[in-house]
Simulated assay, not measured.
Amino acid sequence: MQNRIKPEFLSFGAEVRRLRKAAGLNQQRLADLVNVTRSYITQIEAGRTRCRRDMALRLDRALKAGTTLVEAWDELLESIKSDKYPKHFASYPKAEQSAIMVRAYEERLVPGLLQKEAYARVLLRDEDAVENRMRRQEILYRNPPPVVSIIMDETVLYREVGGPEVMKEQLEYLYELSLSGKVQLQVAPIRYIRNVWGSFHVATRPDHKQVAYAIKAWGGETTTDPDEIAVANETFVILQSEALNVRETRLLIRKVIDERWT
């Protein structure tokens, strides 16, 4: 079913869900506010229907979201007419929300998708940023969940963020996630690996097109350029070949917890 849903609809639905949760509303309460059934809100959020423009306006009013959803609706319609992706879909976090596969390499920190709240609070400056980061992790519990493959540099396990207690909780969580099978987690040993120059993420959407995000000194850069995506994919394959396998990674995480953070 999900493979037949347009990625633009999934992106729009993810934005409705994000705004609804930020407003502290459940689906039934939002449905009551805009005078529709709960099942209709469920269909919109799941990307199974394209609501009318006036519904996007009503949702904006109910969620006190300004013109966020009506602008997204206009871009969605234009993208369907022109067979182009809407601008908001080029945002990596939004692509991630509707992705069927997420891959990432992190050389300094635990990826945001896997961070515990205490770890995230050390890195982020305000409450909204923390809440948004925690909300991203809902995709791990989606049905069906995306395939998530994460490679971290070994130094991430030793780099102290927030103190020993925070690190112990964070690494225990990584260990549990690895056991659960929700994430294929690998560690790249501390050594030079060809073509690896920094952290990056790649989200594969239901139509199998991809969005990549590279972390740079002055922020991040999102791309959908096929040549740049190809470099990211090739680099990830190289990293997988050099990294410890999932079982070895799990053993290393347990060792670091016991020897350094306990």
Rank of each mutant, 00 (worst) to 15 (best):
L185H: 13
E127K: 12
N245G: 09
R250H: 07
P164T: 01
L174Q: 01
L179F: 00
V110D: 10
P144A: 05
V122F: 14
P146K: 12
D207L: 00
A129K: 12
R133K: 15
D128F: 00
A230K: 10
R135T: 07
R205P: 01
V156H: 03
R108G: 01
R205E: 09
M167G: 07
Y141T: 12
E228Q: 15
Y158T: 03
E160S: 03
L114F: 04
I193S: 09
R108H: 14
V147C: 09
A217C: 00
Y119M: 01
V231D: 15
L177A: 03
E176I: 03
R159Y: 04
V122R: 13
L140Y: 11
R194L: 08
Q137H: 03
E172A: 05
A120F: 10
W197V: 09
P206L: 12
E221R: 13
R191P: 00
N233L: 10
L124I: 13
E117M: 09
G220V: 08
R205S: 04
P146R: 13
K209A: 08
Q137F: 04
P226E: 13
F236M: 08
A129I: 04
L179Q: 13
G181I: 06
P145F: 00
V148P: 05
E160I: 02
L239D: 11
R159E: 02
D153F: 07
R250S: 05
M152R: 01
W197F: 07
V110P: 07
G181W: 09
D128Y: 00
I193Y: 11
E165L: 02
A188K: 11
L157A: 07
T235M: 04
L114G: 02
W197A: 05
E169A: 13
I229R: 10
Q115D: 09
H201P: 00
P146W: 13
E127Q: 12
